[in-house]
Nucleic acid binder design. Structure first.
Lengths: 159, 159
DNA sequence: ACTGAAAGAACTACATC
DNA sequence: GATGTAGTTCTTTCAGT
């Protein structure tokens, strides 16, 4: 039941992760297949968990969320329950888009997106700093955005 | 021509950034509007640059890209041309999903996703380390993934 | 800006190979 | 697995308010 991805699957995934509004018809023409064949493959890819979701990526700047900031966080206590609690609390902050527990000189690395530096200060004072057992915090304020994509590198997935 | 977003626009954006495969018909029912009204608003949001693109988010683990790593990079030289060149070079690495020039004790922060630690070592040796003027590099290996979303916080965008 | 209707296109299911 | 057909639903346009 847990099949590997063949070349056609990978091509479909790559097309969809760049533009998921393309019609199955166009994908089919691209791959010289029938629309039904493509349709069934996509459904399978969805059901087998290769595709998480289909989303619109909004333009942060145009929307008015102009500041991206990464925060390295070190906790004072490192019991499992503290780590878990931290993840759970961060989950509730809509400003936080990503949170990873990491190795290195931080325990966690967060990516947050909000309107501006003022909004960031408010975030820190009213939300982040209230977390118990919070130790050191180091902010990396994005001053220029380079590459920024959700497109995974599928070329390395041999088959 | 550069209109502000009203509440209806924000609701549409919020729906689309969570599921862009929803039909305009369903959005319309949700908002008690006609499909045409919703359709025209979406087109406007696209044309005015509020929506960048529509993408499928793939499941990294299922696909076989199990390792997320953040890298803090410090360059030796800090002239504008070095900074620009770094951004350009990183752009060519498909393993790098995000790259920001930051303030703090790094010049750049990169997010990379690849198969495993071995693939990371290969990446560093065959790509990253070849960049001229590369100074210190610090890796933050994700050992647990917490929150991970592309959904922006639109509640703060007052109107 | 929104509505409603209508044409065209796409989705999805089904029968078949 | 893939195909072609057919029914259903959605997208997109247009005239009207």
């Amino acid at each position: 039941m847990k099949k590997n991805l063949d070349k056609t699957d990978l091509k479909i995934l790559d097309i969809l992760q760049n533009d998921c509004r393309i019609t199955t018809k166009k994908i089919a023409e691209n791959l010289n297949l029938s629309t039904t064949a493509v349709f069934e493959r996509i459904k399978k890819l969805e059901n087998q968990g290769y595709i998480d979701k289909y989303v619109a990526l909004l333009n942060e700047r145009t929307i008015g969320l102009k500041q991206t900031i990464f925060i390295g966080v070190k906790l004072k206590g490192h019991t499992r329950s503290y780590l878990q609690k931290f993840l759970a609390q961060v989950d509730e902050f809509p400003e936080v888009l990503e949170c990873y527990q990491v190795s290195g000189n931080f325990d966690f690395l967060l990516k947050i997106v909000l309107a501006d530096i003022d909004a960031y200060e408010t975030f820190v004072q009213t939300k982040l700093s209230l977390i118990s057992e919070l130790g050191n915090v180091h902010s990396y304020i994005a001053i220029k955005k380079g590459k920024n994509t959700t497109t995974l590198d599928l070329t390395s997935i041999g088959n």
